[in-house]
Amino acid sequence: MPYTLFFVGLLLFAAIVAGFFGALLGVGGGIFIVPVMVLAFHLPMKIAVAASLVSVIATSNAGGSSYVDQHITNLRLGMYLEIATTIGALSGSILALYLKDWLMLLIFALMLAYLCYTAFATRNLDDRRIALGDFSRARQDRLSAYLNLRGSYHDEAANRKVDYVVSGTPEGTGIACLAGLSSGLLGIGGGVLKVSAMNAYMNVPMKVAVGTSKLMIGVTAAVGSILFFMAGLIHFYVVAPVAVGTTVGATVGTMVMNRMHSASIKWLFAVLMAYLAYGMFAKALVIRFHVHFPVLM
């Protein structure tokens, strides 16, 4: 790789854009920066995944702190689910060491396709439920009661204190484990899986789910990063511009996020992810079967 001002500048710029849009959509930059590194910069898949995973830690720190400060993050819920996500991340990163590049590209393409679908399908039902005080009424399961998983936060949009109790702990734990696996295997934060697990299965308000997921992403990505680091897959010259870029992009993106209507721009992200999914899929076929698909550009 020619390490010139031009090459590094481009990579830095791509990372800033990925971090910015990742923060806007609340998915972290990994889901964008890995395809960009592989498709546009022609970096090997495993080096791209490892570099992305390290930068995911940085972006998690960037956005996560403000949620912790506002007490939106449910620390106990995060700590508990981290058991599942770290075990998942360890399994995922071990898998990443042994899987062939083309298979990882294929799995990444599938993940993009899934996220593309959820970007379309998610509707925010929270507002109605907050108004009804619905989140405090769910029945706690035994594990949730034992671990005292509940909380309250001040919702600025609704201008009221929202109390909630956590339910469906076993199901949520299972999905959190899957989210960790996808993080270690694909170099992404896996935030979308975690957030939907908490919001849909565990009766956790959306904002709390996002804040808690952000807290978990740091430790989850750290586990995968440790394994990649010891295996020599973290290429420092690739990580540096990617980490700096996504951190800057995510910090700016998080500041802008609160002022934007996410629903109106979600379709744009869905199109972008469909495009990247196609690119990753095509690249997987080129590597494995030497079949060339037309490039859409």
Binding site: A58, A222, I226, F236, Y237, A240, A243
Partner: peptide
């Protein structure tokens, strides 16, 4: 040497959540 500083930054970043 650039890589030494980048490696230090990487290690620090990984160890922060730990």
């Amino acid at each position: 040497r650039p890589s030494a500083y980048m490696m230090l930054a990487t290690l620090l970043l990984i160890l922060t959540p730990v």
